[in-house]
Design a protein around this nucleic acid. Structure first.
Lengths: 222, 222
DNA sequence: CGTCACATTTTGATTATTCAAAATTACATC
DNA sequence: GATGTAATTTTGAATAATCAAAATGTGACG
């Protein structure tokens, strides 16, 4: 029985939910899952019980869910497809990075393995998508690089933007128009707790100040 | 209310069904529709009544269905998407023409207008898909070329294959391996009623004999 | 240890799509 | 005009996915 788009979305949401878990935690709370999928909590409970019956998740009532090995394999496959497709839409089709998410969201469930193989080849087996998010490998492994956010990286030191962890189109356009896309080199000049902001020196030594919330979504390498 | 994939498929099937109607006929019989969609006859009846309520089709019980202007517009849009995507998969992704149908069948319902605009542009606003099937224009018009089949074209006269009206993968592979794809020049040497076959002179003067049924699926221009 | 707030689950219902099989209708033929 | 076959419609039911709102469990805190 091949998984429906709905099942694939649940698995993907649990997969990324697990990655955002505070350490110590091993289960994704039902409320968080329902929130991520934009569905009513009761719906999530019903569906997760079905996923449990299929052996795709471990479900502890009132505590949360976690993927089994089988569930993880499927989830990684979907996330791989999503991220490859996003990169493909930007690189080959020429779409902007802020307009590819919805297409990828749909295509990930329907295109053939053949299609995915071909674009993976065309793109040269890429490791990250346009937002810098790592692309799971064909065998389901997710390459992990240790990155710092603009809130934690060293001051007055050139760093390279590696990843932007927010898919919101308006945010992405802001990042792009300020030359803060992955690959660009910047420097943190100061952080201010009180004003909740970070001052940056960017492209062409241009200065700008962004909020801490936004700064936390920009991941960099030294 | 935007149409579901299911509705789009019904409309598309009625649209192509209308094109295959014997002259005089204006309605697609329910049985034919159900057959084309691979669903039970009763299901077609139910759905067509719903399409009628939405104003997308004219439905005459026991006689058949036909698209309204609104239904035609939607159907042409879906068919346009399907054929553009097929060409895109062959031309850009590098898939074989016999393996693109299923992907196109799914993608046609989910990709954005932006995606379609971009590939239309990349492909240079093409008029036909890899099988030679005409691509409806963005405003819903279907360019129509008068073509003859290998059963009706003149004998001993060079003609160019323009269209192959069968999506079956095995048939398409046969056509390809015998150099009978759209664009190739061939000549009909003889037709034989009794043996129900057609003898051709193809690429490099290679001779071959194919059945009348197959010959009727190859459309050519003089 | 009782209570309150909040998260989670349960319940009852709805929508879309489908099927199989029974009932009905249309049409050609006798 | 009766009749039989084939197409079509009706009926009753199933599945997947969802919601709103009621019921229940959990954990924190006084």
């Amino acid at each position: 029985m091949l998984p429906s788009s709905t099942v694939e979305n649940y698995l993907k949401a649990i997969y990324v939910g697990e990655m955002h878990l505070a350490d110590g935690q091993t289960l994704v709370p039902m409320g968080q899952l329902a929130g991520a999928l934009g569905i009513a909590p009761g719906t999530a409970t019903t569906m997760v019980k079905a996923l449990f019956e299929s052996g795709l998740v471990v479900y502890e009532p009132y505590n949360g869910v976690r993927l089994t090995a089988a569930g993880q394999k499927l989830a990684a496959r979907v996330l791989r497809r999503h991220r490859l497709i996003e990169l493909f839409l930007v690189q080959v089709i020429g779409m902007n990075w802020d307009e590819v998410h919805d297409d990828a969201e749909q295509m990930e469930h329907v295109v053939s393995d053949r299609f995915i193989e071909r674009i993976d080849e065309m793109l040269g087996q890429p490791e990250v998508d346009p937002h810098g998010d790592p692309i799971p490998t064909a065998d389901g492994r997710l390459p992990h690089r240790a990155l710092e956010t603009l809130l934690t990286c060293p001051l007055h030191t050139p760093v390279t933007v590696a990843r932007v962890t927010d898919q919101d189109a308006a945010f992405l356009r802001f990042i792009e128009s300020n030359n803060l896309k992955p690959g660009q080199t910047i420097e943190v000049e100061a952080r201010d707790e009180v004003s909740d902001s970070v001052r940056l020196k960017g492209h062409n030594d241009e200065r700008m100040t962004i909020g801490a919330r936004a700064a936390s979504k920009l991941l960099v390498t030294g």
